[in-house]
Amino acid sequence: MKAGLKKYRWFLLILLIDLLLAANSPAQGRLIWGHTFDVFVQMLSVLPPIFLILGLLDAWIPRETVIRHLGEESGVKGLGLSFVLGAAAAGPLYAAFPIAAMMANKGVKYRNIIVFLGAWSTMKIPMFLFELTSLGSRFAIARLLLNIPGILFIAWLVDRAVGEEEKGSFYRRHRQGI
């Protein structure tokens, strides 16, 4: 119980802040409660299926297969596949984090994981189609075409600037799998 409370201490702090804000303005307090409830419901509809699928993929997909397609020696094909995996997704960015953890566990090259994260954040195909209809083809296509070199550059930069030490601890942290 005590350990449980300790794990949730930051969340409890936020609840305390929520209460103070609610005491200050009950109307806004109700809004905060409503929004927080909504995002929890949304999270509970997104994350459990992802963890379930990750658990099964983790058990059934051999590390060697993943390394061959996305590992250190995967080259341009690995980069392309990372873009496709990120862009084919649907869901908020936080859902990509546990997937990235499994990629690390399966030996995916660091740069490819960051490309996957970048593509997930801003190149999702369903979102692109929606952007196309709301903001027009020039806007959406220009952004899509810029994002490809942009994400490659950001991944290159992150790959270079994050030291071997942090990269090593990233891979070690996720060695247990998801």
Binding site: L15, T36, F37, P48, Y94, P98, A101, I178
Partner: peptide, 19 residues
């Protein structure tokens, strides 16, 4: 286990999003 493990951090972020 990994879901339960990361929940405290998720709860913080979701709480922040609510605000």
């Amino acid at each position: 286990n990994s879901f339960a493990n990361i929940m405290p951090d998720f709860a913080v972020v979701l709480g922040l999003i609510g605000i």
